[in-house]
Design a protein around this nucleic acid. Structure first.
Lengths: 129, 129, 129, 129
DNA sequence: GTGGTCTAGACCACG
DNA sequence: GTGGTCTAGACCACA
């Protein structure tokens, strides 16, 4: 199991457990995690990122309540068979919409020309793809 | 004073006071608010957005502590004369960097092609500019 | 706020936080808690039942994720305006179905005549109604 | 040996091994299993219900520790000669009491009239008896 | 005052 | 080995 599956920023305003849940949503929607795939164990993730196991457990539990994950008793968590993996590009783009709109609002507050923002984003997106 | 200066989402995970402070930072950096400009009163903002006056007051106080605003006795808050208004495009773009990088990470988790993301962002940026 | 709103059995196999969530579901469905009603604070409930505040908090958070409760920042939890209070008798009866079926199965395993079980249940239901 | 003796719900919050032990208690109390009766082997039960043999084994061991079952060398488990089979209706009804009381509490939380609950239970009890 | 987050650690349940 | 539950306590965010 790859405990480096998640990116965690212990600093930053967003709570760790929610960072994990949201990454799970996207990784599943994007198809990088498919139904039945096993997840790294709570202890692995906690050890790797040096965070408390309960924090990881909380993320997994919420994801389970949301129908993203399933618990195989004694074996660990897997991506739920009912989770909608590999969704259409349109619906994945919809999941990005809030971030896109926030970016637009911020760009306008900063009076940044669209062209400048798009150019920078292009660079970042092409960086080590 | 225009109480609609700020956009506030009382729901949403980001605390209201921080939404206000960050908007202030960007509006000043972008030059939409210049040194000496008066801000809408705590009361006006709170009434307009139906939020607690204490929340607005807190945002203003933090912005003051940060050197963005100044308290003029009897006249309310104004943009500080020491605030760095109308910064260079480069430094404003730097303020957008965290949001850009988050967007890139999310796009990759969603396995969205760069072209798709850029196209959508272009549309949003050109929308009612 | 009435901290005695909930019945909690710290012993017993069912985790405390789930006991609370399930009672919330039923109290809301039954109309004893209506949209907008305030809930006892985490600390009150924890103090009253002598359990850890985090256990109560966990229950409230799950209920919020489920759409049963809403968080009024700084003020506490209230029954969500979107929660379906005072549901029809039919749908409330449906919520009881799993317990009813378990009871039937157990009665049969115990070879208890239906009449005996019904008589006992009648007594209990009429007891201090 | 009839591996379908037990009803097992691998999903559901109640641990499988406890489901089995409790069914054993009731089947013995109700007289459907009498002293000396042989039980299906661990293998049979595990295979039939597609659960881990260790889980069945654990249930049998607990039932043995409780005096419900006896291990006959080379022959498997049988109902213990010391087990109190075919208990009185009163004592069997007592074993149902916790479920009855839980049902009553839930009915009240749901504000369901006694008559409605009793009617539904009657139907279920008479169904394919 | 409210709830939220995280930690450290104990102990349990399950396979 | 897996995850779950609970505790005690610290500290933060918000109104």
């Amino acid at each position: 199991m790859d405990a480096s599956l998640f990116t965690v920023q212990p600093a930053g305003p967003e709570p760790i457990y929610r960072q994990i849940v949201e990454q799970l949503r996207r990784l599943i929607a994007g198809g990088q995690l498919g139904a039945g795939d096993a997840l790294p164990s709570v202890r692995e993730v906690a050890g790797f990122h040096v965070i408390n196991p309960m924090t990881v457990s909380r993320a997994y539990s919420l994801a389970e309540a949301e129908g993203l994950l399933e618990r195989l008793r004694g074996k660990g968590m897997v991506v739920a068979s009912t989770s909608r993996s590999s969704q259409s590009e349109a619906s994945r783009l919809a999941m990005l919409e809030p971030s896109l709109q926030a970016l637009v609002r911020q760009s306008r507050e900063l009076e940044l020309p669209a062209e400048r923002v798009l150019r920078r984003l292009t660079t970042l997106l092409e960086d080590e793809p």
